[in-house]
Simulated scan of single mutants.
Amino acid sequence: MKPRAVVIMGPTASGKTWLACELAMRYPVHIISADSVMIYRGMDIGSAKPDRGELERFPHALIDIRDPAEAYSAAEFRRDAIAEIEAALGRGQVPVIVGGTSLYFKRLLDGMADMPASTPEVRAGIQAEAERVGWPAMYEQLRSIDPVACQSIHPNNLQRLSRALEVHAISGRPISDHWEAQASDGTSGEVRLADGQLVSFLQFGIMPSDRAWLHEQIALRFDLMLDAGLIEEVKVLLDRGDLHDDMPSVRAVGYAQVWEFLNGHCSHAEMRARGIAATRQLAKRQMTWLRRWPGLQVLEAGPAADQRESMLQSTLSQVADFLQK
């Protein structure tokens, strides 16, 4: 039988972690996090990381694997996720990959282009140039080099912008050329294990049926994060002295807005409003991406009292059929 795994994607605050834990109560699963903020140690509240009790009951791989000062690429995620999938299958478990970082899922399920490895020297040179001329000028530089890549890289996504410039500097080829080679290699939607077997995926996407409800959930969750000590959590990061606002960890939604507040750039009310607005924008981007993702089993989430139970029963039915094939 072909190895099988389950994927749970969805926008922030839609119930992904809850659904993964429900599966863990019924099947021998191994939960693998696909969240680009939960990877960081000490960034618990703002990332909505499961608490210690939940993690003891339902362990998650790829959580707390990096210091906030360290980078973590989609290529590294793919490598680590495949290793976790192989280990889980070897133990007779069902891998369940859950999270909201679209790029991680794209790299895992679409494969990786044959791109040059990142080098600290080139990356530092790009950072130094950006500090001198500004990131908007760097984006225009990328536009002149690779207009195709600029169509999918937002000017504010400094990590992807820097990586695109780095790939061109090292290889002499636009990063979009590497993407095109990846798209034509015939591996889309498949993950090949070390023994040559291809993993079959059942892919769920949680899609809120009521946007107003999702916005309410986002606002409620952000307020709960503030009550739980998000400002104090970010202050610990700020007081370290070795982090700056160009780092992926500090640019994370919620953390970036509290960082601005602690540095005196906005009031508490402005910070709250900006944090909620940024989270809404993130959810919108996540849902737009999900609508374009092929082969997705859509699960509707919403305010109705029985909607969560309906979503769970639909998931359990599909997972049972999938594992018996």
Rank of each mutant, 00 (worst) to 15 (best):
M38G: 01
I97M: 02
G92R: 08
A83Q: 07
Q203G: 02
T119W: 10
G229I: 00
V199D: 02
P248A: 05
R91E: 15
L282Q: 03
I175A: 06
A128V: 15
K49A: 10
G189E: 09
A304I: 06
I175Q: 07
V122A: 08
L282D: 07
P120A: 14
W179E: 15
L158T: 08
E54F: 12
V133L: 13
G254I: 01
I126K: 08
A252Y: 04
S171H: 11
M38L: 02
P136A: 01
D239M: 11
E140T: 12
S118A: 13
R79G: 00
V234E: 02
L312I: 13
F77K: 02
P3K: 07
G46W: 01
T288H: 15
R160P: 06
T187S: 10
P11V: 05
L238Q: 14
H60T: 09
S184K: 15
V148C: 04
E166W: 08
L312H: 03
M1H: 00
A75C: 10
S14I: 06
A164D: 05
V199F: 01
Q217N: 15
I85L: 04
W289I: 15
T17A: 06
G90T: 11
R285F: 05
T119P: 04
E56P: 07
V258G: 03
E54H: 13
D51Q: 07
P294C: 13
M138L: 03
D177S: 12
V319G: 05
F261Q: 05
S47W: 01
A34N: 00
G53K: 15
M311F: 04
M25A: 14
L237I: 10
L238K: 14
H178L: 03
T17V: 09
H215G: 14
S317Q: 14
T187I: 11
